[in-house]
Amino acid sequence: MNRLPLKKNRDILHLTGFGLGLLLFPWLAQHVSVLSHYMDVMVFVGIYSIMTIGLCLLMGYAGQISLGHASFFGLGAYISGVITTKYGLNPWLCLLMGMAVSALVAVVIGAPSLKLRGHYLAMATLAFCIIVTIIFNENVEWTGGPDGLAFIPGISVMGYSVDSIAKFYYLVWSIVLVTLLLSLNVIGSRVGRAMRSIHGSELAASAMGVNISKYKIYVFVASAVMASIAGSLYAHYLNFLSPASFDLFVSIKLLIMIILGGMHSLWGAVVGAALITFLSYEWLHYFEEAEGMIYGLIILVIIIFLPGGLVSIPGKVRRLWARQ
């Protein structure tokens, strides 16, 4: 694997710092009372981050939009939820099953629409998202329908039960870190360069011998699998599922996380996930009815005024500083 040594070192530095910060947060939350109930939100931030990292690879590096990731999230969640509750299977086995099903579905939807130029995937996944929501609502005997599915068992790691918020925090964030590490590795590799070249110009990339549709399908499937993992974790953390957690609105929220953070940076994906999760769990519900409008506005404002997202701000400031 060809590497870019400088970038690699910087990534490792960032990752180490990030990991230390994550280790420090529970200690801070214990001692600073204002932060104490943010542990719970942080678990959700972690769950959403797993999804946005995958989605960022798809959007920022392969230049494709998916509006169906809430459904892959839902597939993972419901497969884990339904099978562990009704048949008592091992949660980790269900997580793997969810991953397999999501990968299969992603191939079925992605392969035909990604073979074409243009943005057929966005509309195909939009349709997929609506259909999956209908399926979750209609199959009452399996999913509990609109009332939801309750009493989903928790998860345990090597016989050690993950039964508190703090334990789940460590579980979720270690998975986030692994996902980040793997994704950063992919970006720095040959595959990552191929993906970036697709985003730059599909024509030039294919002229250089990059098999465009193959890479796009790989990335789409990988991101769907990540969303499915997030879904399984979500099911075991919340112990309750309802179709509303996986509808089009959630897909749009994921899109906003990526755009807000900056779609060309994996760190942006995490930053965006954190901001929007805090916004929607803590602050935005004061606006209730106007929430949809606010999200629409955020997308427009960012895409018009700050197309690089929030992570592009430090670079911009540095450049302004250098000019003076």
């Binding site: 959007m59 230049g63 939009i65 509006l67 243009g118 943005h119 966005a122 749009i252 899109l255 755009i259 106007a290 929430e291 949809g292 409008m293 606010i294 999200y295 629409g296 506005l297 955020i298 997308i299 427009l300 895409i303 018009i304 197309p307």
Partner: peptide, 18 residues
């Protein structure tokens, strides 16, 4: 094309919310 599509998604969501 990507940013234009994202903008129309944002606008659609805004119109629906409004």
């Amino acid at each position: 094309v990507l940013s234009m599509i994202i903008a129309t998604i944002g606008a659609a969501f805004f119109i629906k919310g409004a």
